[in-house]
């Protein structure tokens, strides 16, 4: 039990208790969400095709939709989905739930596949694995990393839903449509500084701490 939650007296629910109930709900959801983490582990440990099928059923249609938001054709999006899912199968052993939730990990795989496709003519993209292997400096300490990564994923989603529309829009352009800050500024006819501050405001609302922010 964490500090800060005290039982109320005389049958009244104190705000802290309400908060506890909400927390329990989100933990429930979190556990539910981490089912995907378990499935990835099953793929890693037992090469479990049933687990793979379940992952495919959940993630493949979302990945397809995600890729299509960037303006690609249905065929091109499916091609990336195929590559990403095969990659998931192969790299399942590198999944580490103390570092990322299942959906975040799968997001990075698909993102890298999409970059690969764009750069196919040239050199294979900087693979996420490279950078996973490249951890020469330790990640910042995260006690209880696993629960935290999963919980914060749930929290993130609900905070995302509450974002003001203009902030959500710039985030979607950045993530779904692969647009840089300057691309977005250009497209929306906004000064670059405005786009920067909208994205920062959005990240702030998502309670992502922005360290060492310069300029």
């Amino acid at each position: 039990m964490r500090a800060g939650f005290r039982l109320g007296t005389a049958g009244r629910l104190w705000p802290a208790q309400l908060a506890l109930q909400v927390l329990e709900k989100s933990v429930e959801k979190a556990i539910q969400e981490d089912r995907f983490g378990d499935l990835i582990d099953a793929v890693a440990r037992r090469r479990d095709k049933a687990a793979f099928r379940e992952l495919f059923r959940h993630f493949a249609p979302r990945l397809k939709s995600f890729c299509q938001r960037g303006g690609g054709s249905s065929e091109a999006a499916e091609e990336i989905v195929q590559e990403a899912m095969v990659s998931l199968w192969r790299k399942a052993g590198t999944f580490d739930r103390s570092r990322a939730s299942a959906s975040t990990w799968i997001y990075t795989i698909a993102r890298n596949k999409r970059i690969d496709t764009l750069r196919r003519a040239g050199k294979p993209a900087l693979d996420g694995d490279d950078y996973a292997l490249a951890r020469q400096a330790p990640m910042e300490e995260r006690p209880d990393g696993m629960l935290e990564a999963v919980q914060s994923q749930e929290k993130l989603r609900s905070l995302l839903q509450d974002l003001p529309r203009e902030q959500r829009l710039v985030l979607e352009k950045a993530y779904y449509e692969d647009k840089t800050h300057s691309d977005i500024a250009h497209e929306l006819g906004l000064p670059l500084g405005t786009v920067k501050s909208r994205i920062r405001l959005a990240l702030g609302r998502l309670r992502i701490s922005l360290q060492g922010v310069e300029s």
């Binding site: 495919f56 979302r62 499916e78 939730s101 959906s103 975040t104 993130l156 989603r157 779904y176």
Partner: peptide
């Protein structure tokens, strides 16, 4: 990693798009 988690949350937020027939078998 925190910014990638935003990507993961946005992935969960999209409306799923149906895949063409036999997509799972192709992945297998």
């Amino acid at each position: 990693a925190a910014f990638e988690a935003v990507g993961g949350a946005l992935l969960e937020e999209v409306r799923p798009a149906p895949l063409s027939e036999g997509a799972f078998e192709r992945a297998l």
